[in-house]
Amino acid sequence: MTWRVIVGTISFVITMIMLGFVAVTEQDRMANFSVAYEARTVETGGALFESNCATCHGLDGAGVPAKGPALNTPELFNGARLTEANFAGTVDNFIRLTIAGGRPRMSEWARAQSFIDPMPTWGETYGGPMRNDQVDALTNYIMNWGLAYQGGAQPTAEPVVGVGTDITVELPPGDAASGEALATSQGCTACHVLSATGPAWLAASDPNDQGIGTRAALRLEQPDYQGAATTPEQYLFESIVAPNAYLVTDNPAYINAATGQSIMPATYGALLDPQMTSDLIAYLMTLK
């Protein structure tokens, strides 16, 4: 009987001591949880970015020509883009706002880079498919790129020296395998898989069963060809760096009705160095 009272009392005191322990450590615990949770949202954001944004912004955030701008870049975090967009808030807000609302009408800055489609709307609140916590996770993931640029650190990648638009320059020997990788990373495959958005490269998707490697030779012999190329390789070179030298008109969607120019960006001469260009050409030549 007495021992019951004693053991009961001791248990009660132990419970109180444990609660005291929680009370003392609770602030730290809550802080740790917040840090851990924030970190987990970055992970979630990475997965979401990979499945929803990488097609336009590149898996590594370096941007995809004609599709979407680079996000993994100092300009986004050092305020240059905010100034350009006349935005008074923080970078964090700028990113969150852009993701949630999208840019239904493309900005001047984006138009100048000839992106095809505007930035879509993602936030549920504005008719997109994503919940708020998903938009937050994406924001945290993109902001996490910014850490690398804090303290003035600059990206280590060397700037590309463009190949230019002169198709007679001598190119180094090309490697088809790396050309294939470039076709994806440079955004070519965004347009050239199905013939609806650009002439399809693979014979299987071409109405006449001709791969781009075969077509390159045939184009030169077409009566309406007005370009400067004399060999199939040069034709491909020209098509990449000067899309408007000769317009393929198989499909009206290839031509921007307002300007009469190709919808293919005319900027690749500046974006690709000679090696990259040669690799791409080598790859295209394999697609007979």
């Binding site: 009987m1 009272v5 053991v7 009961g8 248990s11 009660f12 132990i14 419970t15 444990m18 322990f21």
Partner: peptide, 24 residues
């Protein structure tokens, strides 16, 4: 009172301590 009630309270006190310790 007093036998059964002290037992019951004892069980409760012990179990509360266990549940709290386990959760913490």
């Amino acid at each position: 009172m007093p036998d059964v009630i002290t037992r019951e309270v004892l069980y409760v006190a012990l179990l509360t301590a266990v549940v709290v310790a386990w959760s913490i």
